[in-house]
Simulated assay, not measured.
Amino acid sequence: MKYRRPRHHFRGSWMVAITAAITATPAIAATSHFGTFSLSPGFEPAAGIVTGHTGGYYSLSEISRRDRDRNPCVGFADPQPDHILKLEKDFDRLNIQVNSGAYDTTLVIQGPDDKTIRCGDDTGTNKDASFEDKNFKSGTYKIWVGTFNPGMRRNYTLTVQQK
């Protein structure tokens, strides 16, 4: 008896699934490259300092073209956030700064819900990104540190200060 390959009625459906998977926009993960840190009002300054490095080809404008104040969201990073910040209580005002040694960095902050986006770019004459805003509600914030050119790897320190 000669072996015959079974015929499937779903011929080509696997190709559709593969094509869909390749062309899908990457999902934003609930984990981060450099970990999670938590802050409560009155935190020690050292608790608001974390480090990491930039790098990636994902356009941060895919998260949002503009933030809630109409600031442009620009730069390139990885689709996965660099840091996750958990605010244990509400903060009246926070300042978030990147220090990469004056390379041209950008900042995207998403939280405490997926719709609230804050974006930062140059700080005065410094090319490093920063963002200061009021009314940070308790919750989880995803933070991306990007660069203007895709794939640029720069070490940085991210500092969160209570104002």
Rank of each mutant, 00 (worst) to 15 (best):
M1F: 11
K2V: 12
R4E: 13
R5M: 08
R5E: 13
P6N: 06
P6R: 10
P6D: 09
H9P: 07
F10A: 07
G12M: 04
W14V: 14
M15P: 00
I18Y: 13
T19E: 04
T19N: 02
I22T: 09
T23F: 14
A24H: 02
P26M: 08
A27T: 15
A27Y: 12
I28N: 02
I28Q: 15
I28Y: 09
A29D: 15
A30L: 13
F37Y: 12
S38T: 13
S38Q: 12
L39C: 07
P41T: 03
P41H: 09
P45T: 01
P45L: 06
A47P: 00
A47T: 03
A47D: 11
A47G: 03
I49M: 06
T51S: 15
G52P: 02
H53V: 01
H53F: 05
G55V: 06
G55K: 02
G56A: 10
G56Y: 07
Y57H: 14
Y57L: 13
Y58I: 02
L60F: 07
S64T: 03
R65N: 14
R66H: 14
R68K: 11
R70V: 10
P72A: 14
V74W: 05
V74K: 14
A77V: 01
D78V: 03
Q80K: 14
Q80P: 00
P81M: 01
H83D: 06
H83K: 09
L85G: 10
K86W: 04
L87M: 05
K89E: 14
D90C: 03
D90K: 09
D90N: 14
D90M: 05
D90A: 08
D92F: 08
R93T: 13
N95R: 15
Q97G: 11
Q97F: 07
V98W: 06
V98E: 05
S100I: 05
G101M: 03
Y103T: 00
Y103P: 00
T105V: 13
L107P: 01
I109T: 01
I109H: 04
I109P: 00
Q110G: 01
P112S: 07
P112G: 08
P112F: 07
D114Q: 13
D114P: 06
D114C: 04
I117M: 04
D121W: 01
D122V: 07
D122R: 12
T125C: 04
T125E: 03
N126R: 13
N126P: 00
A129H: 12
S130M: 08
S130T: 12
F131D: 06
F131Y: 15
E132V: 11
E132Y: 10
D133R: 09
K134R: 11
F136H: 05
F136S: 06
S138Q: 15
I143T: 08
I143M: 03
W144C: 00
V145Y: 04
V145R: 06
T147Q: 13
P150S: 11
G151Q: 08
M152W: 05
N155C: 04
N155R: 13
Y156Q: 09
T157S: 15
L158I: 13
L158S: 08
T159P: 01
K163G: 10
